[in-house]
Amino acid sequence: MSSLVQTCVEVFSQLLEYNEREAVLGDLEETGVFGGLALRDVLGLVVRRKLEIWKSWRPWLTSLGLAVPCSFLLIGLSLHVSQTCQRLLGSKVEHASELIVGPGLALFVCNVLLLIGWSWTGGFVMGSVSRRTVSVSAISAFIPCLFCMSRFHVAFLSRFSLVLFLFPAICGVSHGLRFAQIKFKPALAMAIGITLLSIHTWSSSGFWFPNWVLSWPVWFLVMTAWRDRPHKLHIVAQSFRQT
């Protein structure tokens, strides 16, 4: 039993940062605390550290403000893209030029680009803003997917047509974990491009609300890059004066 408890202590200690984990295990060994007391101390510390993360606005933004609502909206867009693709491929076109320049194909391409852009930028913000809770954000994004897939009953379409956005979103998360920020000019170009592509989603009464929900991550990247520009310019100016 004692060996099992000690194994649990080592397993749960892996949830701590490396330096803190080594310090905690070293203190327990020096003080001679083993068994249930050691497990209680390690678990208590792990719980406190995990709760401290949620005192910041970042994990709440990425999990509730981004992952959940954007997942539902991207599921709807994925389904729309899948249905449009099936309709275009199944329709009989008399002339090939009609398929190439027709408005239906142009709208389909626009929606595909929007799906990729919205998914990637949302994933990037999820991975870069709150790296320590990205697993929670990922679970929050997968729950709507599982919910909708379990209730999906559309003839001639696979359930996987609902989650076309997952691959670009995962790529965005991966890049967000590797790079905390995008440079200002690429971020601005991406934001302008996505906004122009989303023009067809505007209604006569103003902007379509889901459009704003899906577009805020890319403009968030623009604002973040713009905010850090003066700091970078100040560093460059200091280095120039020192030389």
Rank of each mutant, 00 (worst) to 15 (best):
V9P: 12
E10P: 08
E10G: 03
V11H: 10
Q14K: 07
Q14N: 11
L15G: 05
E17G: 14
E20R: 09
V24Q: 02
V24Y: 03
G26Q: 12
D27G: 04
L28M: 00
E29M: 03
E29H: 07
F34H: 11
G36A: 09
L37C: 02
L43T: 05
G44T: 05
R48T: 12
W54E: 07
W54D: 05
W60E: 11
W60A: 06
L61T: 15
L64H: 02
P69K: 07
P69M: 08
L73W: 12
L74R: 00
I75M: 03
S82R: 01
T84A: 13
H95N: 07
S97Q: 05
S97V: 10
E98V: 07
L99N: 00
G104I: 03
L107V: 11
L107D: 14
F108Y: 11
V109P: 15
L114H: 11
W118C: 06
S119T: 13
W120P: 10
W120V: 08
M126W: 08
S130K: 04
S130L: 07
R131C: 03
T133P: 14
V136C: 05
A138C: 00
I139H: 05
A141T: 06
C145W: 11
S150W: 01
R151M: 05
R159E: 14
R159N: 15
F165P: 10
C171W: 04
G172D: 12
H175F: 11
R178D: 15
F184D: 00
F184G: 01
A187Q: 07
A189C: 09
A191Q: 10
H200D: 09
H200G: 06
W202L: 13
S203K: 15
G206I: 00
F209R: 03
W212D: 08
V213K: 04
S215D: 13
P217T: 05
L221M: 14
L221V: 10
M223C: 06
T224E: 12
A225Q: 03
W226I: 06
R227L: 12
H231V: 10
K232T: 11
V236T: 08
Q238K: 09
Q238P: 09
F240M: 06
